Amino acid sequence: MPGAEGLTYREDYFADPAAWRGLVNLLHDTFGIDVGQLDRLGGPDPTSRAFAYFDEAGVCVANFSLFSMPMVIDGRAVRAVGYQSGAVRPEWRGRGLYRDLMQRAFAWANAAGCELELLLTDKPALYEAYGFRAVAEHDFKGLAPMADSGVAKGRLLDLDNPGDLALTTRLLATRAPVSSRFAVTRQGEMFLLSAVFDGDIRLSYSASLDLIVAWQMDGAEFKVLDVVAAKMPPLSTILAAIGTTATEVTVCFPPDKLGWEGEALERRPHAGLMIRGNVSLIHPLALSPMAGF
C-alpha cells in the first residue's frame, strides 16, 4: 500500500519469538506497558490474530490485533471479538498504516461471522466512522449483605507463585460468566495481565468453594471486580470468602446472579467501551475490569 514502502506486512505472527518481541517493544514504547509478562503467565491468547508492519531491521512499527471474546448477552451465547494493541511508532504515523491494519482486522472478523465487535478507546471519533458506537458502563453500589457465617475466609493468591498461577489458570478455564446480562465467558489472559499490572488488585481463593474473587480497596470504597468459579455464588458468600467487614460494596459487573441489587452508577473510565454489531443490550451493563483489554 502507498506509505508502506520499505515495510513488510505480517499477519498472525505470535509463533515467531522475534516478531512477538517486536510487538512487546512497540506497546512498551507507546503505552509504557509490558505485555511480555504474558510469557510467564502462559503465553498470549491463542485466539489472537495480529496485523502488523515491520521494518527492514525487524522492528514492529505498526500493529492492530483481534482476539476471540465469547460472551453471554441476555442469556444467549454471542460470538464476539475484541480489538486491542493498536499502535504506530511516531515516525511512521500519517501514512495510513493504522487505517489499513484496522480495515484488515475488521474484514477478517466479518468473514469469520462475528456477531459483535468490541474495543476500548479514549478516541471514540476515530472508530465512529467505522460504525462503532459508545456504550456507557455502570458499576453497582449498595449496602453489603451480611457475610455467610459458615464460609471461612480464603487466602490471598500470589501469581509469582507457580502453584497459585496454575490454580488460577485452572479456574479461569472452567469459569461461569459472572452475569447472564452481559459478561465474557472466556478471557483468562486479560484477567491474569490485569492482576499483574495493577498492584492494588487482590485475589482471594476459597478452597472449600473453589473460587477466586478479584477485589480492591479504592480509597475507602470496597470493590468486587470479578468472580472466577464454576457456578456463581451469592454476594453474601463472596464477601465471606474475602473476609471483609465493609458495610458498603461496589460490584463492577451486572449483579443479576448475586442475589443482591445495587444502585447503577455510570463508570468514568479513561478508555470507554465501543461496540459494533446487531446485538440487543440490556442496560445498565459493564465489563468486569478484569476483562479489560
Results as ranks from 00 to 15, higher is better:
E11K: 12
D100T: 10
L209W: 09
R104S: 07
R175V: 04
I282L: 11
L265F: 12
R79H: 12
Y98E: 05
E248K: 07
F182G: 01
I275W: 10
M274D: 00
P44F: 10
P44C: 08
F14T: 03
A112C: 13
A214T: 02
D100I: 08
L38T: 12
R133E: 13
A107C: 05
D198M: 07
P44D: 06
L193T: 03
L171H: 04
N110I: 14
S180I: 06
P145A: 10
A152N: 13
G58D: 09
F54N: 00
C252F: 11
A125N: 07
A176Y: 05
S204Y: 04
V213E: 01
I212Y: 01
L156N: 09
H270P: 03
E137K: 08
V78T: 15
W92D: 04
V178Y: 02
T237Y: 05
A241C: 09
R40D: 09
L7Q: 11
D210N: 14
R276N: 12
M217C: 14
A214Y: 03
A80M: 07
L285E: 01
L165C: 10
G163A: 09
G96Y: 10
G82F: 02
L120K: 04
I282V: 15
D29H: 14
A4T: 02
V88T: 08
L38W: 04
G272Y: 04
D74S: 15
P124G: 04
P46E: 09
G86M: 07
K257W: 05
R268A: 14
R10P: 05
S204L: 13
M102P: 02
L23E: 00
V178T: 15
K123M: 11
P46W: 01
G272D: 05
G243W: 02
A144M: 07
L203W: 00
H270R: 13
L235T: 00
R276K: 15
W20L: 11
Y98N: 01
Q37Y: 12
D122R: 13
R133F: 15
V78W: 01
A15K: 14
A241T: 09
E266P: 08
G94T: 09
A214D: 00
A230F: 06
Q84C: 11
F67Q: 01
D148S: 14
T174K: 12
E248H: 09
K257I: 07
V88F: 03
P177L: 07
T121K: 02
L143A: 15
D29Q: 15
P2T: 10
G94L: 08
G3K: 06
M217V: 06
N110A: 13
R40N: 10
V251S: 00
D29V: 12
P124D: 05
L209F: 08
A134K: 12
D226T: 05
W215A: 03
L41A: 06
A147S: 03
R40W: 08
W260S: 03
A147C: 11
G94D: 07
A134H: 14
L41K: 02
L203K: 00
D256K: 05
A57Y: 11
E263Y: 12
G292S: 14
P177W: 00
M217E: 09
D16C: 09
L38E: 11
G58Y: 04
K223M: 11
